[in-house]
Design a binder for these strands. Structure first.
Lengths: 417, 417
DNA sequence: AACCTTAGTTCATGGCATTAATCGTGGTGC
DNA sequence: GCACCACGATTAATGCCATGAACTAAGGTT
């Protein structure tokens, strides 16, 4: 877990890592720009870049004239060097998606989940099936898949087994990582869905360009992904960011978690609809499922609906303000299907409500935006898990076999005794 | 700000840093133990240790028999290698304290603050006077002082000027660091008082042995210091951890910050006494200042007092639960004078209240303890600021002049070509 | 007294990034 | 039209670093 920074070889790996990360994230760059961005000498940049080009990880991509000098050659990560598979295990369906290294989706597979509490084995089977399905669909060599990232809605222990605890799925200590590993040779990564979505928004969406952000997710449940200094904040056991079950109204409404006054009981979709039903003398909002009911509520213009939504905005503002006060982010990104629906209509008022409840200075330092990525962002974020690993390792961890044979060395001289 | 990890020299510095940190924090250690603790080869440990011993930073401190082998020599940081000064700028007094490198207090100076909103210039004058006062008092060469750490109650920008915003002092953008630097050659560090206290508790108090903790401080005001992976969580602009003004009771009591329902309005000393007064038909608790009034309240056994305190425990539990849900720490350390007073009497009930409001799993992963250090902990924490810097730099950044002349070495033998 | 055990040091080695010099490529001035 | 310049990138020489293996130190056991 803790990268032991000791030997001189590790330094090279670390430098390769920052170099690759820059190239991947900041698009095509010249060697010169890389040198400035990474504080490495041009000689080292050249050296390292040459290495990754030889390995096929990076390629030259055109050149740009410089005023009166040799044109600079731009570098980018080879899109087809490898492929990434991201999967989103939701409450109603499993989605599996294949990406190239530019994060362009190449193929998709979806499997509905029938049971309320799906069998882990069945989910694993779907995931493995999806893995082969998307590679076949896109005509990609399965051996070129760098990794499979899986997003689930519970907390995931950061161990080799990737033990999952997910109340919504009824999973208690399911070693999802181990189960998947048993079915494939491709490296498997499992993480919480909110965190993968947060990572996706940070790299490609509304969080772009910031290093400290909180991605606040409001759907049926309510959660948050906290990103600190560019990396996901996990806490001691990876369950940090449980925003939905923070107390916002002491002694208030009962939440489905059993406690009173949780934020989720007020701004979660269920909580909103419930409060509307109460305010509306027991008559619920129209619409079949939660999503259409909330949409209906947002479109209706009755006094009752407005009062409930107004209140919701207030609670949401207070909740966001708590995040701002505690985490002091540069940006809060509001997402989740209910969060987006609310945000699209009420964002200015949400900002105002937040301003009312947050401390002046931290509020002024934070901007509040909406998520920019579509519903596939969770799977895309999952696919960034193997990519993040690739970048962190500075490319393929060279297999010992690829090492030049030791036979070239002179025979070891016999030891004198 | 960002340690550019590039050259091979930086690696040595980094290794010296981890070595020194281990020696300093984990008491006397042998070279062997150091090798295991730092994942460095014994050869490197020997080499590096020899260097810091030559510089006088580390010294041998006795030896321990090992079963049947050569006794291991223990190493420790030389207590008198340098001295640290920590200062606590409180609302009523400025405290300046001198420590050796074992964090033993050697001298103390205190200056009362008369005005409610003290003049920054006067505070700086007190601090500089205190600096010379404590060195004289202890008979320490001022040149041997490695740094001055100053703790203030506001937010401190992490810039060279260390600009302070402190509402309680009436300071708005005071460049305290720059002002102090103008008056002394000794390196100056400024940070928030809650964060320095948190650091002190982490290294020497109730947080010892954990890497993820939240130090929750309850006094007149309410705040928190969040420690993640051993370092203080700062957020984008160093004002993270504003726990006191998170909304815990939506639409509830008015807080002195102007908002409604802040935690501080319920569990801050002022909030508690205020609530008691209201419950007690306008008659306040006995006692002159807040501290004795709260003490009186805690000792009294009237129904009203018990009800108010009971409620306070509930709110505090909910507040702590929010910290646990959001940060997922290994430990929550409750401190501040009011927090300690409450905790000493009610800790089990606070734990219960927290359990009621937190999610089961994060709660089970966190222990709740009381601060262990006394009222000087803030100054002590401030003194750790220069120490932290020393450790991070792996000792004095060697000035080129201090380099030993190469003449002592045998002449390099000419290499055959 | 020979041998074992554990701690710590020395030395040769392979790796690393850096600086300085060099090569490559295009435009500009006379 | 040619020398020259500006800028990008590469190569060569250099110094520093941690490592493993061999070795020294210091004590106990048989």
């Amino acid at each position: 877990m803790d990268a032991r920074r000791t030997t001189v070889r590790d330094m090279r790996r670390a430098n390769r890592a920052v170099l690759l990360t820059r190239i991947w994230l900041d698009g095509p760059l010249s060697r010169h720009e890389l040198g400035q961005a990474t504080a490495l000498s041009l000689a080292s940049v050249s050296n390292l870049v040459g290495e990754v080009i030889d390995e096929g990880l990076v390629e030259e991509a055109g050149s740009v004239e410089s005023d009166g000098g040799r044109p600079r050659v731009l570098l980018r990560v080879t899109p087809s060097y490898g492929y990434l598979v991201g999967a989103d295990v939701g409450e109603t369906r499993i989605q599996v998606e294949l990406f190239d290294l530019t994060m362009t989706a190449l193929a998709k597979a979806e499997y509905p989940i029938a049971a309320a509490e799906p069998d882990p084995g069945a989910v694993v089977a779907h995931l493995l099936h999806g893995l082969t399905a998307v590679t076949e669909q896109a005509g990609v060599d399965p051996g070129a898949v760098l990794g499979l990232g899986v997003a689930v809605s519970g907390t995931v222990e950061r161990t080799a087994d990737a033990v999952v605890h997910a109340q919504t799925l009824g999973w208690e200590g399911v070693p999802l990582g181990a189960m998947l590993c048993a079915g494939t040779d491709i490296p498997v990564h499992v993480d919480n869905g909110a965190k993968t979505l947060g990572q996706a928004e940070m790299w490609f969406g509304a969080g772009r360009g910031t290093r400290h952000a909180v991605v606040a997710l409001v759907g049926s449940g309510v959660g948050a992904a906290v990103i600190t200094d560019g990396v996901s904040y996990r806490g001691a056991h990876s369950s940090a960011g449980e925003w939905g079950h923070t107390t916002i109204a002491y002694g208030g409404r009962q939440c489905r978690c059993g406690n009173l006054g949780c934020l989720e009981a007020y701004v979660g979709a269920e909580g909103i609809l419930d409060r509307y039903r109460q305010a509306n003398r027991g008559r619920p909002a129209a619409g079949g499922d939660e999503e259409s009911a909330l949409g209906e509520l947002l479109r209706s213009s009755t006094k009752t609906a407005e009062a409930v939504l107004d209140e919701t905005v207030g609670y949401l503002g207070a909740g966001v303000a708590n995040l701002i006060n505690l985490f002091n982010p540069e940006r809060v990104v509001l997402g989740g299907w209910a969060g987006l629906a609310l945000g699209e209509r009420f964002l200015p008022r949400i900002r105002e409500a937040t301003a009312r409840h947050a401390l002046r200075q931290p509020y002024a330092q934070a901007s509040i935006e909406l998520c920019q990525l579509g519903p596939d962002a969770v799977a895309m974020g999952a696919a960034t898990l193997p990519m993040a690993r690739l970048l962190r390792d500075g490319g393929v961890p060279r297999s010992p076999a690829a090492r030049p044979a030791a036979s070239t060395r002179p025979a070891r001289r016999p030891r004198a005794r």
